[in-house]
């Protein structure tokens, strides 16, 4: 009996293991070697506020209006507000002396409603509204969630990556 008890304490009964693999304790130590060796491996965690993620150009961040030479490309056709499934966009058109003749006097995106689907960007005939690479949207009041033209207008230079991406993939 003693023999069997000793054998069952110190051995795992499995034919597919070699004799030295059937000991419990050396295998536990092997397991600990594996776990401890992980301690010295490089970490996966990104220290977020200090180290930021640079999204690829295919990333759909918050939608912005493209501004070229100080003028927005938008002609206030209203297609984006028509296509928006979340009803987040509100456009009010007005006339202008410029060759494009129309411009949005009011352009508001409710970022509490926006679902980042990118339909507005797809439908836009002027390539005037695009998804930027910004993903940090925080506000503490509901009213702050409605982004007007002041927050939406972004110069085309900053959106180069995205515009290039759209030209190649659309």
């Amino acid at each position: 009996m003693t023999y069997f008890v000793l054998r069952s304490l110190f051995f795992v009964h499995r034919k597919d293991l070699r004799w030295y693999e059937q000991f419990y304790i050396p295998q536990i130590i092997n397991g600990m070697k594996i776990t401890l060796s992980q301690v010295f491996r490089p970490k996966f965690t990104r220290q977020y506020p200090e180290v930021k993620w640079q999204p690829p150009s295919s990333f759909r961040g918050r939608p912005v209006l493209v501004e070229q030479n100080g003028i927005e490309r938008c002609v206030a056709c209203g297609l984006c507000s028509r296509v928006c499934p979340a009803l987040a966009i509100e456009v009010q058109a007005s006339e202008t002396e410029l060759p494009k003749e129309r411009y949005p006097i009011k352009f508001e995106i409710n970022m509490l409603r926006c679902i980042f689907c990118g339909f507005c960007e797809e439908v836009c005939p002027e390539e005037a509204i695009v998804m930027s690479q910004e993903f940090e949207l925080t506000f503490t009041r509901q009213e702050d969630g409605i982004f007007g033209k002041d927050k939406l207008l972004t110069s085309a230079d900053k959106l180069k990556d995205r515009l290039e991406f759209l030209r190649q993939n659309r």
Partner: peptide
């Protein structure tokens, strides 16, 4: 901290 290190976290 140790469990995080073992799982490649901080």
């Amino acid at each position: 901290r140790l469990s995080a290190a073992i799982q490649n976290r901080i």
